[in-house]
Design a protein around this nucleic acid. Sequence first.
RNA 1: GUGGGCGUGGCGGAAUUGGUAGACGCAAGGGACUUAAAAUCCCUCGAUCUUUGAUCGUACGGGUUCGAUUCCCGUCGCCCACACCA
Length: 861
Amino acid sequence: MPVERYNPRAAEPKWREAWDSAKLFETKNNDPRPKYYVLEMFPYPSGRIHMGHVRNYTLGDVLARYRKAKGFNVLHPMGWDAFGMPAENAAMQNKVHPKDWTYQNIATMRTQLKSMGLSLDWSREFATCDVDYYHRQQMLFIDFQAKGLVGRKVSKVNWDPVDQTVLANEQVIDGRGWRSGAEVEQRELAQWVFKITDYAQDLLESLDGLDQWPEKVRTMQANWIGKSEGLSFSFGLVGAPDGFDTLPVFTTRPDTMYGPTFAAIAADHPLAKKLAENNPDIAAFNEQCRRIGTSAAEIETAEKLGFDTGIKVTHPADPSWTLPLFIANFVLMDYGTGAIIGCPAHDQRDLDFARKYDLPVIDVFLPLDSDERVGNTAFVPLKTQPVRYVQWVGEPCTQTAYEAMSRSLEIFEKDGWGTRETQFRLRDWGISRQRYWGCPIPMIHCESCGIVAVPKADLPVKLPDDVDFETPGNPLDRHPTWKHVKCPSCGGEARRETDTMDTFVDSSWYFTRFTAPWENEPTDRKAANEWMPVDQYIGGIEHAILHLLYSRFFTRAMRDTGHVDLAEPFKGLFTQGMVVHETYKGPSGWVTPAEIKISDVDGKRTATLLSDGSPIEIGSIEKMSKSKKNVVDPDDIIDSYGADTARLFMISDSPPERDVIWTEAGADASHRFVQRIWRLIAEAADGLKAPQGTAASDQTVAKIAHRTLKHVGEDIEKLAFNKAVARIYELVNALHAPLTEAALTGTASPTLRQAVDFLIAMIAPMMPHLAEECWAEVGGTEMVAARAWPDFDPSFLVDNEVTLPIQINGKKRGDLTIARDADQSAVEAAVLALDFVQAALEGRQPKKIIVVPQRIVNVVG
RNA sequence: GUGGGCGUGGCGGAAUUGGUAGACGCAAGGGACUUAAAAUCCCUCGAUCUUUGAUCGUACGGGUUCGAUUCCCGUCGCCCACACCA
């Protein structure tokens, strides 16, 4: 019986309305079922969704729908990371208010996301630019401040003198402002910081417990935190300006304290700056050092340069031992104390420097088997490898670097001139942004009282709407009235802080807010504690360090200010790959996939321009980007194929953690599969509605149905969606013949009906609209999205007979089908009786027969 | 440079963690149906050879093992991250 093609354009909106009106995906906080919190990283409302969003939200939705079917109370919310610079850029370029621009984009993107059929609880939706949200963020800030987690720090910013504004690093192009083209200046500004370094040790140690995070991300965070243990001490200074009596230094290699031949400081070191005041050469050298370091490539190739200050430092263990003090371009002010001790024999960088400036090289330790001194390659063995120490604090001996480091530390501490210290690379989180479109920092500057927090009763500090972006500078700062305020402490004239918060602050707790977005306090503690941590967080690898580290810090800070009772916000983390696409280049530049036609003759693909047939070069496969024009618009795909096809494509073939290549052929294939499922089920629907006959006749169907159900469930739980899809293909292939038969005869067995029920349940998380349509077609009444995941019957998973591959000397020569419970000797006897075994053995006795039960047999002859 | 990962057909990728290599899909070729097309269905599809079979084959070279895509050593190549971190 022929049926009409499945029409997603009609079916999909119908089912979305049905889910909506049943409020199927609205989650209650007091639901007694076990909880499961699925969260995809929320989007920035840039204007339209892109294929990367489609992939991200499909992955999360498959999991959310599956968990819901498995009986969990699933929280799957959505919101908007809505503050940030693009809104201000749009305001300047198109004269749109950032607020209007942002909320319009949100409206567009919400509609687009809804067309994907996601099982989201839209009742919890918020944007970080909603006053209700940033109001609570200001409450958190004030609590953090009271707890001592907020500080002030003077740090350098990129200042655009024409636009009168601070620039982010990415807005500085070749040393010039991206808009004005003016040469960027370095200015020092007092900035607000969160004291993330207070938690450095905990943030590092706790990474061990995050066993459902990718190892790669944990490593990246550990490196970012960058813990090192070593010796802290001070050099004495000879010939230094007044006020510089000693020079504090940190070294991770106390075992090499008897091998240094120079000391060096950063160009930004206070001593270097002091020296520059009276010495133009030093001033020029420092300036030169500062200019290097804008791009990674320059740093890589930069030659190690030093400037001999003429000052001598004295060794702490022996004041008569002096070393020259250099200013060096490879010493960083930000790390340690901005001063190093140079031990050329055992550090390649120090050695290069010593050779360049003709400094001596003292070997601290030598290899066990050679007396060869260091030449132009530093001797840097593993710290676990024993070496002969010849120049160190103790008697010459053989030991590992670890042993020597620990013994040296002990002795130096006892001698009283050095202390054991732990250094972190991690720095405090600067959150001040001199911009309008962000959460205002709720602080007040008063001439007489200093810095005072806005009382909670006076919150929120709202952004003023009447701002203009015509003139340069921060609109909050030049607003006629906004910043003028009475001091909450003395009542005198005071002024508001005009900095707003880094948008990473907004995204550091939105996942907690989702647990009770209606609450007056930042959190409903009970709800937050019940829902958190997020069971599965899904997003791009680009957030591996900052967003995730800040969120981990923020959750701890919220714990320590009484808003939640946990430290780690994300139990499981999954980093998905990108959506990539071929690029196409014509005589006048890149062209979009929609503008070309691809033909394939015997595997040779050529492309021509649709408009005039001119040849187009097929380029490399790259991340979808507007500049390369290799983008595919999700709206176009959903319009022409439907959301289910787009969703299926996103999870087929490529493992979710890898990049997926979007191709027309692949989209067609996914669409064919959607149609195929529909056709097979719809054509057999009459029989399937009223199954007849006995179940026993369909053993093969029952077996594959139950087996597939088991495996697909397991695969989804592992987020191995590509494998789950392959399993479903196999099942559909197997059901093809019985369903075609059922369509012809108009009858179906209960087993076939059950297999179809399983199939519908399994496609439901992936292709939810199609599943509903099929389910209704076979007479289902309630919605599939509200139904439970079926249970497989384990008895169908075991066969009474197994087919074992038979190897002779490790090479497969045939099969043996035998009773599943046949014992070893029975298997051996049966194997030896096989023709090809007999032939191979030529009458000899086998040396050995290896029988791996239910797996394989290997005859060694 | 340091750290991590990876290398399987024309392509995306499977392979129950040592047990039949290439599931499933794409592309390609052949066929059926059709006046024709679309759609659908069937067949072939790692390489080589003396082609009802055999040999080789998971980047390359060794090793362990009855048996290696999987474990070990070495070489080559690719990708990612961090990067003058004292």
